[in-house]
């Protein structure tokens, strides 16, 4: 197979990851379920990861891939804590609806 870096222009990766990021933003605004909102945040993190990997591959610099590795570590920690929070909120209000969590909004 020929080198994919030559046959795919880098602009396509910019376009793809900005589209993916905007889908994630739209999902956060669109949905009321907290779990789906957390998944959309993961989607945004992944779009940034894809952009970092593409820049690191095209610029031939491995620093970007190390950053992506650290982003994955932080994302794993964030998901573990976030899901624990959702479970403990569900125990109190018996719902994962974002509108049922507005006790701080006084």
């Amino acid at each position: 197979m020929e080198n994919a870096l030559v046959s795919v222009p880098h602009n396509w990766y910019l376009l793809l990851s900005s589209l993916l990021f905007c889908i994630g933003v739209m999902g956060v605004l669109f949905r009321r379920n907290v779990i789906v909102i957390l998944m959309c945040i993961e989607l945004m993190l992944n779009s940034v990861n894809l952009l970092l990997v593409s820049f690191s591959a095209y610029a031939q610099n491995a620093d970007g891939q190390v950053f992506v590795f650290f982003v994955m570590v932080v994302a794993a920690a964030e998901v573990a804590v976030g899901l624990a929070l959702i479970v403990s909120i569900y125990r109190n209000v018996a719902s994962t609806d974002i509108d049922s969590m507005k006790k701080l909004k006084w």
């Binding site: 080198n3 870096l5 591959a57 095209y58 891939q65 190390v66 590795f69």
Partner: peptide, 20 residues
Amino acid sequence: TFILPEKSDIGLVEHVGKKL
């Protein structure tokens, strides 16, 4: 413009591990 090499191997375990 990026200067693209013939063969890219920076994403392999060896390179990333050395950086890491």
